[in-house]
Design a protein around this nucleic acid. Structure first.
Lengths: 234, 234
DNA sequence: ACAAAAGTGTTCCAGGTACACCCATGG
DNA sequence: CCATGGGTGTACCTGGAACACTTTTGT
């Protein structure tokens, strides 16, 4: 804010998105990557990103990047972290680069990838992810931690599940993200039901053998008073 | 990353610090503010901030701002959030401004304010804080939430308490930040002691009337294995 | 002797864990 | 009638909340 003794840096600001989705059928946590075509790191996979344009907010840039790669109706998005270029790699000419990363969770069912010949885009299972360009592996790891926390303390899952879901869908969702090392199914059931935020539509759904499952939906009104209370979903 | 159809924004990047400290004697949570002298918001108090210089990392800029205002040996610092200028207030000429905020906690005992005639700097009790310049009140609120969370899930308190402290010091510290509406003293005691991360130096200290208190110190070795386990301090 | 501060112990209860078990459907 | 997945119930245990009580100092 003060007149400085040494010259100010001029920045170009980029936005990089960590876009997660969960394939509940296959019980896999997915991340969206694009294949770079240009120098540097040509041929490497990287997080979808863009540079911020004049008059465009950071968040708008994040949404634009997302919209260029997939068509999706239901998603959750929040800012993740701002990464400096490491001092070593920093090329001060002509302008310095700053990456503001965003974290998104999208509904898998209606996420439709926009295939472009020049920039292939693809879901990767998180545990079968290649080395990424730049410091994107670091950003991805950071995003994964955030995802786990979000899931435990806030109802993001419901932004991204189908409107009507079974308790088993919900359980699959959680275990895909958190890695199967959490509460067993029946305890998960009772905890969720006791919260009183799931509405029992009397409908049943049959999937192969076994007893039909009840369809539930998330009850936003019932959840509202619990917002930012310290409640735990797993 | 792609050649864009509309021109890129050029940024100047600033760093704004939310610097907290705790006066355990008076049981007050403090935040460091500076009084602005220039337009805009002349006369208002604001968070200490600076513009990022060429070749200077974000974090380095945060440390520099801190060092310009106070001399302190023990502190904790981490990035908080990156704030866009709201679309309304955004003046596109000549360059757009981006604020990366940092969050710091410093040891009160050895924090020595650097008084400069041109820019007064002062501790404010958080609950007696004036309206701040720009959107700094919003940033401050965000920082306070982060502080509360950090305190509950990580041992930042020990970065900032004196090396030797009584359990009551620790309790005062927590209640100054979290606002006295948490566990009572004796439960706090037993929980902390049971964690096994406090080392009982056999020394006692007498402060006025009452039974002498045991001095403890934080045992980093004992804590290491518990790192990033989900453990709760309050 | 009494107040003040440190420190210990006890009782009660909510909520998590780990199971065993019952229910409804397809093959 | 059995395998499969959905759903319920129970017994056990940990850990927090509240609070009574003891210990050691100053005045």
């Amino acid at each position: 804010m003060s007149a400085s003794s040494s010259p100010l840096a001029e920045f170009v600001v980029g936005v990089d998105n960590v876009i997660f989705s969960v394939d509940t059928d296959q019980n896999r946590l997915l991340v969206l990557l694009v294949r770079r075509q240009q120098f540097p790191f040509a041929g490497y996979w990287s997080l979808p990103g863009t540079l911020v344009r004049q008059g465009e907010s950071l968040e708008a840039a994040a949404y634009r990047t997302l919209a260029e790669k997939i068509r999706v109706n239901n998603l959750y998005l929040e800012q993740l972290y701002t990464f400096d270029e490491p001092a070593g790699e920093r090329r001060e000419t002509p302008r310095r680069y700053l990456s503001v990363s965003y974290f998104a969770l999208v509904r898998f069912a209606d996420a439709e990838l926009i295939a472009a010949a020049e920039s292939p885009v693809q879901w990767f299972a998180l545990n079968a992810c290649p080395d990424l360009a730049f410091d994107h592996s670091k950003i991805l790891a950071y995003g994964h931690r955030r995802l786990c926390n979000k899931l435990e303390y806030s109802p993001v899952a419901f932004d991204v599940l189908p409107e009507y879901f079974t308790l088993n869908d919900l359980y699959q969702f959680y275990s895909a993200v958190l890695g199967a090392n959490f509460a067993d199914y029946s305890n998960f059931r009772s905890r969720l039901l006791k919260l009183g935020i799931l509405q029992d539509t009397q409908q049943k759904v049959i999937r192969g053998a076994g007893r039909p499952a009840t369809l539930y939906r998330f009850n936003r009104e019932a959840f509202a008073p619990l917002k930012d209370k310290p409640l735990v979903f797993v």
